[in-house]
Amino acid sequence: MTTHYLVLSALLFAIGGVGVLVRRNAIVVFMCVELMLNACNLAFVTFARQNGNLDGQLIAFFVMIVAAAEVVIGLAIIVTIFRTRRSASVDDASLLKY
């Protein structure tokens, strides 16, 4: 019965991945990355159930902590560039190219 959870996890990961590629606002892009990390967590917990060991559930805690640290760093960086440019669009930041 764990298949449904794995399919849901894959769907969430795909939604996150597509979101990163098509959305323009840096905050939304970042939320999509977080969605991908949560999809990973769901997969870990499901596989823990399937494999009958606790590793996957423990890993999910590690991933949450790493995701929290990532939010701190990410919001700091995005807020800084928003204050400079008055825009959080990833298309506007295009000085570095070629």
Binding site: L37, A39, C40, A43, T46, G56, E70, G74, I77
Partner: peptide, 30 residues
Amino acid sequence: LLSQEAAVKYFLLGAFSSAFFLYGTALLYG
């Protein structure tokens, strides 16, 4: 401005790629 743009690009792409690394880990764990 260049420096901040570099940080945003590195951060978003780096986080995106580590999500792939993590999902790969999940699948190999499975």
